[in-house]
């Protein structure tokens, strides 16, 4: 035991080894150009559209938080997988990462978000929790938010003939408040993310 210990000390105390350890030169770390980095702010104003959060495939990686008077996305680096979807999906160009924005601008690509609201009529009891809780409904019709009576047709959905009927699916922001508030699991929001190409958009420059 003691002999091996001595051997080790001798072996690693050699000047040659120490010199190599301290002065050896390797090439500096460079992020490859094709690599997507952590998203960074571009300085544009966040409108709290939350597309980034909804597109993000990694749980807990991005969150839109209060920043001064406005909002700002915050990246949690331990969770972020640097896929860049948040950068691509943001309608306002709030984030950048590597060459994503340049590429998108050059090639005229973007990501399009939409949501499908699926209601299982067998499970739905028409309690209206989803309609009342829905933040878009609350905005569109304060009365709806205050107790489920719709006074106009601007709401996403409302109770009709004992079931939920979707009127404006296009207005859905995918927050899933309705899903959470449904006691029977009768309502499901599906997120549909499509890539498409079109002539260069100004906002993305």
């Amino acid at each position: 035991m003691s002999s091996s210990l001595v051997w080790y000390i001798r072996e690693f105390a050699r000047a040659e080894w120490i010199k190599k350890f301290l002065f050896a030169k390797t090439a500096p770390l460079v992020t490859p150009t094709h690599f997507r980095g952590f998203p960074e702010p571009t300085g544009k104003t966040c409108t709290h559209a939350l597309f980034c959060m909804m597109a993000c495939p990694a749980p807990g990686a991005i969150e839109v938080v209060h920043a001064g008077d406005g909002w700002m996305p915050k990246i949690h680096k331990g969770h972020c997988i640097r896929c860049g979807l948040c950068v691509e999906v943001c309608p306002n160009g709030v984030l950048k990462s590597g060459r994503i924005r340049e590429t998108m601008g050059r090639e005229g690509t973007s990501l399009l978000f939409s949501f499908r609201i699926a209601i299982d009529k067998d499970l739905c009891t028409g309690c209206g929790n989803c309609c009342t809780a829905c933040p878009v409904n609350k905005q569109a019709d304060a009365q709806m938010g205050a107790g489920g009576h719709s006074s106009n047709d601007d709401v996403i959905m409302r109770v009709q003939e004992g079931d939920i009927v979707v009127i404006h699916e296009d207005k859905c922001t995918g927050c899933k408040t309705c899903e959470v508030s449904c006691p029977n699991g009768a309502i499901r929001i599906a997120r549909i993310l499509e890539g498409y190409q079109q002539p260069v958009q100004e906002g993305l420059q």
């Binding site: 304060a142 009365q143 205050a146 107790g147 006074s151």
Partner: peptide, 11 residues
């Protein structure tokens, strides 16, 4: 009217 319809529980 607006206030009534929002905060009362009867129409």
């Amino acid at each position: 009217i607006k206030r009534f319809e929002q905060f009362y529980t009867v129409r």
